[in-house]
Design a protein around this nucleic acid. Structure first.
Ligand SMILES: [Zn+2]
Ligand SMILES: [Zn+2]
Ligand SMILES: [Zn+2]
Ligand SMILES: [Zn+2]
Lengths: 136, 136
DNA sequence: TTAAAGTCTATAGTAACTATAGAGTCAATA
DNA sequence: TATTGACTCTATAGTTACTATAGACTTTAA
């Protein structure tokens, strides 16, 4: 059995993050030492690494909680897992599209300034203001 | 002079958002009515639309505050504005790259499930677990 | 006159952490 | 053995840009 600091080292999560996951019911130390220190075993390490991998895919803690539950009810169907992943993919693709558009706009904005001018004549601020009077 | 509700309608921001911008020192009603209601004029409308446009470019409130300050010190140089916009572009591009990678991984994960199986044999959960034992 | 709609301040919640404070525990050294 | 330092504990507040209340007050219209 290891203490939280070692689990943090092994997993690459911070100690606070591990305690946070406990509060969020993703991972719990089943045992405590005499001095009330959390104690973890190998299964806990694997569970935390699973969580970490899911987080690297930007899954929310709520989604991970759901996956962990399904994980431990092996007779349930795949459909829930599938649907979640698909929705997640859609969300990521929406965000990519948004940011791509944003990027274009920002670059156009950037081009409107040729520097070495005073802000008074700055194309960037002019552009930002033009947009204002247009939408107004 | 208009009240906050009308400013909200004109700008498309919510009333709470406008009050929030005031707390964040982006926009203030210089006048109050007898009954202590905020009163706004045309300049305020423009200022709020400017803020809104900047927000649509995902600029943070702190960045917008900085732009508004420069805006009203017309003799300062463009460089600060430029640098901010450039950093912002870099950040957006980093995020796009991250999400693009994420998207690939999620799609691969999605392909590993052919549905209609029980979770016990689900390729998705198997994949997520494989990654765990690999990094372990 | 009274009811509805609008506004006020202050406070809490959102997501997933991060960072304290203040107290207790443990291992190793002097 | 005493004490230092590292570690851990709980609880609380901060981050970002809002959103959503509660409870009181003001204004407008019927
Ligand atoms: Zn998701
Ligand atoms: Zn410029
Ligand atoms: Zn930025
Ligand atoms: Zn499956």
């Amino acid at each position: 059995m290891i203490k939280i600091g070692e689990l943090a080292k092994i997993s690459g999560c911070s100690v606070q993050t591990i305690r946070h996951y406990e509060k969020e019911q993703l991972l719990s130390a089943k045992l405590r030492s005499d001095g009330n220190f959390r104690l973890y075993d190998h299964a806990d390490i694997e569970r935390l690494l699973f969580i970490k991998h899911c987080r690297s895919l930007d899954l929310s803690l709520a989604e991970i909680r759901q996956l962990l539950t399904l994980h431990h009810s092996p007779m349930s169907q795949c459909d829930d897992v599938n649907q979640m992943i698909e929705q997640h993919i859609e969300q990521v693709e929406r965000r990519i599209a948004e940011l791509t558009l944003l990027n274009k706009q920002l670059k156009a904005l950037r081009r409107s300034c040729t520097s070495k001018r005073t802000v008074e004549h700055c194309g960037i601020l002019k552009q930002l203001n033009k947009a204002v009077s247009q939408s107004n």
